[in-house]
Amino acid sequence: MGMSVIISAATAQDAEQILKLQYLCFQSEAELYGNYRIDPLVQTLDSLHAEIATHLVFVARLGDEVVGSVRGTVGPDGAGEIGRLCVHPRLQGHGLGARLLRAAEAGLVDERSTTRFRLHTGHRSENNLRLYRRAGYAPVGNETGRDGVLMILLEKDATKPAYVASA
């Protein structure tokens, strides 16, 4: 009998596993852009501890192993900002990213009363864009990140249905 993946709030004790997972997961993004200095790969453990203390951070656990993570916070305009969504490569393609995204959305609505969600992904990140489109996000613009990568900005009204039938 296999174990189930459980999604829960992250704790300070999860920080090291989250950072290692993030580093593993964002290697493919770095390769896609030819840039190994993208923000998720240069984050420090101290800054992650600070995020866990102030943001909504969710993890997916398979037993004691953290196999996925996502973060949410509220931006200056009141929109729920979702970021650093990652799933261990061996578990990708099984809906875990969508579950983590829904957890972040629910947490932002329930705990931070947001009515709009915002996220971004690199312009070449087709799998990410597909996931976000299926989840009801629409492009609203783009900007170049501090790391030089062109990012597509996507938003969704929190009152809209979570997932659309076609992608």
Rank of each mutant, 00 (worst) to 15 (best):
V87S: 04
A79W: 12
A135Q: 03
D64S: 15
A106D: 09
A79F: 12
I152R: 01
V67S: 02
G83H: 05
L129D: 04
R90W: 08
A98I: 02
V109W: 08
Y163K: 11
A162E: 11
D147R: 06
G75E: 12
T121M: 02
L96K: 03
R130F: 11
T159L: 13
G72R: 01
R99A: 08
R102G: 04
L131N: 01
G63C: 10
G93F: 12
M151G: 02
T73E: 03
V140Q: 10
N127V: 09
G107M: 06
L150A: 12
S113P: 09
D157L: 13
Y163C: 13
H120G: 03
A79C: 13
R61T: 09
G80I: 05
L108T: 02
V140H: 03
I152C: 04
G145F: 01
Y163E: 15
V66C: 01
G72Q: 06
S113N: 15
V109N: 08
H94W: 11
L153H: 05
G83P: 03
T114K: 06
R124A: 15
H88D: 10
A138G: 10
V59S: 10
K160N: 11
V87F: 07
G107N: 03
L85K: 04
G63F: 11
G63W: 13
R130H: 14
S69L: 06
Y137H: 04
H123T: 15
G145W: 00
L101Y: 06
V59Q: 08
E143H: 06
D147G: 05
P76E: 14
R102V: 09
L62A: 14
Q92W: 08
L62K: 12
F117V: 04
V87E: 03
L129I: 11
E81F: 08
G93E: 12
T121L: 01
H120T: 08
G122D: 00
E126W: 12
R102M: 09
E126H: 11
G141C: 07
R71F: 07
L119C: 06
G141P: 04
E155S: 03
A106G: 04
E126F: 12
T114C: 15
R90Y: 10
G93H: 11
S113C: 13
L101K: 01
N142Q: 15
N128Y: 05
A158N: 10
T73G: 04
P161Q: 13
G72F: 03
I82K: 03
E143D: 07
